[in-house]
Amino acid sequence: MEMLSVKNLSISFGGLRAVDSFNITIQKGELYGLIGPNGAGKTTVFNLLTGVYKPDSGIIILDGENISGKSPIEINKAGIARTFQNIRLFKNLTVLDNVKTGLHNQYKYTTLAGILRLPSYYRTEKLMTEKAYDILKVFDLDKEAATLSANLPYGKQRKLEIARALATNPKLLLLDEPAAGMNPAETEELMKTITLIREKFGVTILLIEHDMKLVAGICEKIFVLNFGMELANGLPQDVLNNPEVIKAYLGE
């Protein structure tokens, strides 16, 4: 069963072909790694998949639904959630409110009900709080629920970003360098968390990462991007031993 199928996805910025005929097929429940040297176009691929950039050409099909050219909001509703390379939390909101913001489209009541504090407000808010705590518990953040997210230590901010993305109930989760800036112990813990959320939420994951230990450790398949083009694609042991890949990373 295909979760994501991308065909001939391309985008140019001026004369630079940032992503050139990108093709990928991700099966339901798979954990896919997207790697490549700096400037290879990895984050651009994420921005194309989430609608931040409109592709020049190509089709993106998510779980049978064509989402190419749609807005980030529509794409999130269709089932793609993401985290960011440079953390983008809602800094002045508490940890709990950050996750509740992720639940925005799952639990609804009108603005008027919120202002007038109608029963639907109390009912829905209670459900939202419970659901948010459930998610926070998975990430071991429930004790910090009332903390401002800006005051969390770095590793926990990364985790909270994943928690918030999961709150939108995605089919496909895109993680942009989740281990960036983490020490080996934190990376180790993150690997466990990623494995755990896969089991618990049954979500398909595509992640960008530079930490080869993490990529080789948890990814089932790896896609290598270089200068916006496919360099290798397949099982980790094949890809990581591919001479072309080693050349791209280490030079000749």
Partner: peptide, 16 residues
């Protein structure tokens, strides 16, 4: 408030 703190993230969370 999410829009105030980070517009891009707010859009990515499906907030109109």
């Amino acid at each position: 408030m999410a829009i105030r703190d980070n517009r891009i993230a707010a859009e990515a969370m499906g907030i109109d």
